[in-house]
Amino acid sequence: MKNLRQEFIQFSVEAGVIRFGDFVTKAGRNSPYFFNAGLFSDGANLGKLADFYAQTLIDSGVEFDMLFGPAYKGITLASATAVALAAKGRNVPFAYNRKEAKDHGEGGTIVGAKLQGKVVIIDDVISAGTSVRESVDMIRAAGATPCAVLIALDRMEKSGKDDALSANSAVQEISETYAMPVVSIGNLNDLFDYLSAAGADTELSAHKTAVAAYRQRYGINI
């Protein structure tokens, strides 16, 4: 698992999906790095990403019957992960939601397989947790059971505003609220380890100090 996590971080950096600099997060924080899964935007990179998702889910030991991808990024991620799982001998159905209900054809907001059994929610990251909460509500309304969330990167940072930081991250809050695991392919510690392993004279090593300071300020205690 450790090798898989490091391979994922390296892949994300080399693909330009993890970038370093000065970015403003959804929480309004100035972050020295940014992860944008939408930049896995060609067939080869999406296929490799899906393989990371599929292998991480298999290795997690989570029992599941199908996948669900919240609109919009989750749609591509869930469908690609289903393809990768099938290639590994685990053929499972998947579904996703529309933002607006369709009033013709099959109608409704859910597309794909019927939501039933134990459902894994597939997304890129958890910031405020809004899409996960909405997904849980849709899955339960259909009579199915949300059993886990699978994300690409866990930023491992405290939720809330700077003057009222929570002791927990959004990932931890989702896990505790819904009593289900949140599994990530990689996390902030993996990113820091990757930067630490870079040679002292490399460009990547220069970002280590900024990431360390950010983790010191916002990182959760684990």
Rank of each mutant, 00 (worst) to 15 (best):
F68Y: 15
E106A: 08
F20R: 09
R90M: 12
F23W: 03
S131N: 04
D162Q: 08
A213G: 01
R133K: 13
P70D: 10
F68D: 11
N30K: 15
T177V: 04
R155H: 03
S60T: 06
A206L: 09
F35E: 08
G219W: 00
G112N: 10
F52V: 07
R98T: 05
E203R: 13
R19M: 12
M1N: 10
A44Y: 05
D190I: 07
F94C: 14
D190T: 07
I174C: 02
E7P: 01
G43R: 09
I9N: 05
A167E: 15
I139F: 01
K118H: 05
F68W: 11
K114Q: 14
V92G: 04
A206C: 05
G117V: 06
K99S: 11
Q55V: 13
Y194L: 02
I110F: 01
A206N: 11
T109Y: 09
T25L: 11
L150I: 09
F64I: 09
G69V: 06
A80Q: 10
A210K: 14
K114C: 03
A86Q: 11
V136F: 01
A198E: 13
A144E: 05
M66F: 01
S41I: 03
N30P: 00
S12V: 01
R29M: 04
I75M: 08
E106M: 06
S79G: 12
A37P: 02
V120F: 01
I110G: 04
V171H: 04
S196L: 12
R5M: 10
L85N: 06
L77R: 07
K26T: 14
R155W: 00
P32A: 08
D190R: 07
I75F: 02
A84M: 06
D123K: 05
Q216T: 01
P146W: 07
S127A: 14
F8K: 04
E106Y: 01
E63S: 14
F68C: 09
T209M: 11
S169Q: 10
I75V: 15
I220T: 12
N189Q: 13
D59P: 05
A50R: 06
D59A: 12
L49T: 15
E7Y: 00
A37E: 13
L191I: 07
G69C: 05
L39T: 11
P32M: 04
L46K: 10
V132F: 08
H207P: 06
K102Q: 09
S205K: 15
A167C: 05
T130C: 00
F8R: 06
Q10V: 03
A200K: 13
A15I: 01
T202F: 02
V62S: 04
A170P: 14
F34Y: 15
L191W: 04
Y218F: 06
R90N: 07
G38V: 09
A213L: 00
I122W: 00
I110A: 09
S196K: 14
T177R: 13
